[in-house]
């Protein structure tokens, strides 16, 4: 019964992440002045899952989101798909690692996740297109990741407080 409840919760979170991601892509930030930049509100769901559940569940939602958004929007196994996948993977891995340090708060973990997301995407582009010059984008991507990572972290933190959830793994 408990297992079923958890599966239900995970599928609802996954759906939420996919819907947020798709809706967000319709509204370019700052009227599209910074091309390709999104706040990454779907990551609120992933940070939330990382704290309410564990690494495995967060990874499931993150990869599931990339897969479903690709099927619905950009096409499976396209360049854009692998681009999103590398960002999402690096982001979740780095967040889980920094959470294990037990030093940073949820906002700090979310911040490093946003940085990891940008880095993962940039390094994928560097290796895929064999152009080291792409690394020129890194400073601006990282700079924009700081506010977006903090906003996502604060949202996730407030959601956990709002739902009054005892995070099962506060200690690790």
């Amino acid at each position: 019964m408990l297992q079923l409840k958890k599966h239900m919760q995970l599928s609802m979170l996954l759906t939420l992440a996919v819907v947020i991601s798709i809706i967000e892509s319709f509204f370019p930030l700052f009227g599209g002045i910074i091309p390709g930049f999104k706040l990454g509100l779907a990551n609120v769901v992933i940070v939330f899952a990382l704290y309410v559940f564990r690494f495995k569940e967060a990874l499931f939602i993150s990869l599931g989101k990339v897969l479903l958004v690709a099927i619905l929007r950009t096409g499976l196994f396209s360049v854009t798909f692998f681009f999103s996948l590398s960002g999402a993977l690096v982001s979740v891995l780095v967040m889980a690692l920094f959470k294990k340090f037990n030093k940073f708060s949820i906002v700090g973990v979310s911040l490093i996740g946003a940085i990891g997301h940008g880095m993962g995407q940039i390094f994928f582009a560097v290796f895929f297109l064999e152009s080291w010059q792409i690394i020129n984008y890194l400073p601006i991507v990282m700079l924009l990741s700081i506010p977006s990572g903090i906003i996502v972290g604060l949202l996730a933190k407030n959601l956990i407080v709002y739902f009054d959830i005892n995070t099962v793994n506060k200690q690790n």
Partner: peptide, 28 residues
């Protein structure tokens, strides 16, 4: 492309990347 990121970037003198098209313009 789906998002037209590279054409929305406008004039540049460092680098333009059109990822879905796999085209890169490096200015050096």
């Amino acid at each position: 492309s789906p998002l037209n990121i590279c054409s929305n970037m406008g004039w540049r003198n460092d680098i333009i990347v059109c990822l879905p098209n796999r085209v890169v313009i490096e200015m050096v």
